[in-house]
């Protein structure tokens, strides 16, 4: 996840003129609410190229801290607020994946626990750590369930024509996807719906997990490279990696809770 955030920082630098310069492509309007919400719109409300640059530098530094396991509760909180600000400012360019990344960063705040001398605080850290693990897993399941639920309300998804329709729109297709036969598009249509609706219930079974994750990774690689939604596809794959990584780790924690904190 921290590597992906570094990639995002690089992309922001590469597209600095597009996103942050005086003649930027982004259209912004201040959103003052005079409440706690303003904390999310600092970059949007007080925009300047310098502030944009400062945000990119801060994003790089905080991601590096996380990557080298030097992050703590405060740095993770700042990283979450920073990404919320960038999402608020770049609202017209973000996808559902970016919002999901923000949720992962929220739970990531509670992960940064290095064991200390006090057994009381170590127990507290372990409790927060476990809550964040559960939070991430439920969040991913919720995302899939909601995406599947919305599809049940759409006639095109129900009659099996949605995937074929999407593959005919130039912005979300490629030559290969455009030429897929109708029957295959229908299979993909219903497979996607079934996958999204069943994921929250079946992912907890060890025998199903590997097949679900393999299907999901292939699906999101097609979204990233075939449909052109690179960032969205990669964020979803990161979710799978977190799911797998923390699943294995959870088993280790059950055997030796102390070892987990030491490994962080």
């Amino acid at each position: 996840m921290y590597l992906f955030l570094l990639y995002k920082a690089l992309i922001y630098v590469y597209h600095f003129r597009l996103l942050f310069s005086a003649k930027k492509m982004i259209f912004t309007r201040p959103v003052f609410t005079d409440t706690l919400q303003d904390l999310v719109f600092v970059l949007n409300n007080h925009y300047s190229a310098g502030l944009g640059l400062a945000c990119i530098v801060a994003l790089s530094l905080l991601s590096l801290l996380g990557l080298f396991r030097r992050s703590n509760y405060l740095s993770n909180l700042l990283l979450w607020l920073l990404m919320l600000n960038l999402s608020g400012y770049l609202y017209a360019t973000v996808t559902a994946g970016d919002y999901l990344l923000n949720q992962l960063l929220f739970f990531n705040i509670f992960f940064s626990a290095r064991p200390g001398a006090s057994p009381f605080f170590n127990d507290l850290k372990t409790a927060f750590h476990n809550m964040a693990l559960a939070g991430i897993k439920v969040q991913v399941c919720l995302a899939y369930f909601l995406a599947g639920w919305f599809k049940l309300t759409d006639a095109a998804w129900l009659d099996g024509s949605a995937v074929q329709q999407i593959f005919q729109i130039p912005g979300y297709t490629s030559a290969i996807l455009m030429s897929l036969p109708l029957w295959l598009c229908m299979v993909l249509n219903y497979a996607t719906m079934a996958y999204q609706l069943l994921f929250p219930f079946t992912i907890w079974f060890r025998s199903c997990k590997i097949y679900l994750l393999a299907f999901g990774i292939i699906q999101h690689l097609v979204i990233a490279f075939g449909m052109g939604l690179f960032s969205f596809g990669i964020i979803m794959i990161i979710c799978y990696i977190l799911f797998l990584k923390y699943d294995d780790r959870s088993e280790a924690i059950r055997e030796n809770p102390r070892a987990d904190l030491e490994n962080l």
């Binding site: 919400q37 999310v40 719109f41 919320l84 608020g88 559902a96 919002y99 999901l100 923000n102 949720q103 929220f106 995302a143 909601l146 995406a147 919305f150 599809k151 309300t153 759409d154 095109a156 998804w157 024509s161 949605a162 995937v163 329709q165 999407i166």
Partner: peptide, 13 residues
């Protein structure tokens, strides 16, 4: 805005 998310991915198609 802190926990905003939207999962109408390609709905309507």
């Amino acid at each position: 805005p802190y926990f905003h998310q939207q999962w109408t991915v390609f709905v309507p198609a």
